[in-house]
Design a protein around this nucleic acid. Structure first.
Lengths: 219, 219
DNA sequence: GCCCATCGTGTCACTTAATGCCATACTGTC
DNA sequence: GACAGTATGGCATTAAGTGACACGATGGGC
């Protein structure tokens, strides 16, 4: 009752998120198959087996239906970053966690990842989808503020913290776009399978973008 | 006929941009006064003295009507960066150009600047407007790729270039949000009047965010 | 001067994204 | 099992956005 807003009655946050993701999957599939403009709210509702009215209860616009799927691509990395212990270096933490995710349950739905890449790709030509992608990245940045602020021992509203958080979020975004485009273009997927190398690339980019302020263990 | 797409017939790019800005001014004013949701396309059209149909000919959505005004805030800085000669340091170039802008014609409409700040502020609570702001920043980043790529002597699609461009664009965005929020909150405006200090702050932040790759003169 | 091509704008009809309202089915608590 | 609070569905409605066509302005060639 203290941490959770309400124990009974309301749909649990988790359940709501699942539903949003479900809708998002169908919407994204349709967007990819026939384009955003050619996909109607009715079609999405039909595909997921809900009434159109309910779709608009869960999403404020058609394009935003893509957000959860698009977010999925970043959400794992973000979760990993949130659990970053102060005494670890970024490289070590990323490498260990990414390796763990490879073998742990749940095995991170590959179909979702592909779908997310497709949406990001679509966002390159469809302005409507680009807003969804940018909104997702914006959310990433806000989360990043908390992480960075906590690391530097300063409030999230601090200018320095915000600059570093924005820079880090940019890295995640650009790398995501880059890797996604490469994979969709038919690049060798195994190039990104080496989690240690991947962790190093991410960590290096984040260190660079934050002027070294984010990456080292902190006392 | 060579530089300009078409000499006769079509509305010149410049004229079109002026009109878009005009519409954007009225739209932004209405958004600020009565909120985005409460402002209809008809109202905007009425305020600027055009038919509603024409509004949709120039903007693909209601929210995007705010883009030109919002963009104004960054466009000057972007113009300055585009004219950055290779042999100058970022600090020097920014300081000289910003100082020149203070006294040169046209004197950069202060009302537009204020309006832009208000829109960015509104974007903090209105998701619809946030997309407009993010789209403007996205455009900034694309422009930045060209600038950075040219500076580093590498193609704009290069991963390194994109990372640095994104970082630099982030700096511009966060600083803009920060300064805008401060001014709207009633901070002392004179704090940002010292162009030399301002130039130093921007340059320092960009140097940091790009790991020092962008800022020095290049041979 | 005139004619003509081209494009911007207005008007109207139309599609559809999105919201409000109310009745109903569901989910958990006592 | 009664009850409270919600999520959902269906329907009416608003408003965002588009297509089609006609008119007027602009500018270029003769």
């Amino acid at each position: 009752m203290t941490t959770e807003k309400r124990s009974g009655g309301g749909m649990s946050e988790h359940r709501r998120a699942r539903l949003r993701l479900e809708i998002s999957r169908e919407a994204s599939r349709l967007f990819w198959e026939q384009g955003v403009a050619a996909t109607s709210g009715d079609q999405i509702a039909n595909a997921v087996g809900l009434s159109t009215r309910t779709i608009w209860r869960h999403f404020r616009s058609k394009e935003s239906c893509a957000e959860p799927v698009v977010m999925q691509g970043v959400v794992t990395l973000l979760t990993v970053l949130r659990s970053w212990p102060r005494q670890s270096s970024l490289e070590d933490h990323l490498a260990t966690e990414l390796a763990r995710l490879r073998h742990e349950e749940p095995p991170v739905d590959i179909a979702d990842e592909m779908l997310a890449m497709k949406m990001i790709r679509l966002a390159d030509t469809e302005p409507a989808l680009r807003t969804a992608w940018l909104m997702a990245c914006d959310q990433t940045e806000r989360d990043m503020r908390v992480i960075v602020g906590d690391r530097l021992g300063r409030p999230g509203g601090d200018l320095e913290v915000r600059l570093h958080a924005a820079a880090a979020a940019s890295v995640v975004r650009v790398m995501d776009e880059h890797i996604g485009a490469a994979i969709l273009a038919g690049a060798d997927v195994t190039e990104f399978q080496d989690v240690t190398a991947l962790a190093r690339r991410f960590a290096r980019a984040i260190r660079t973008a934050t002027g070294g302020a984010v990456g080292d263990p902190v006392a």
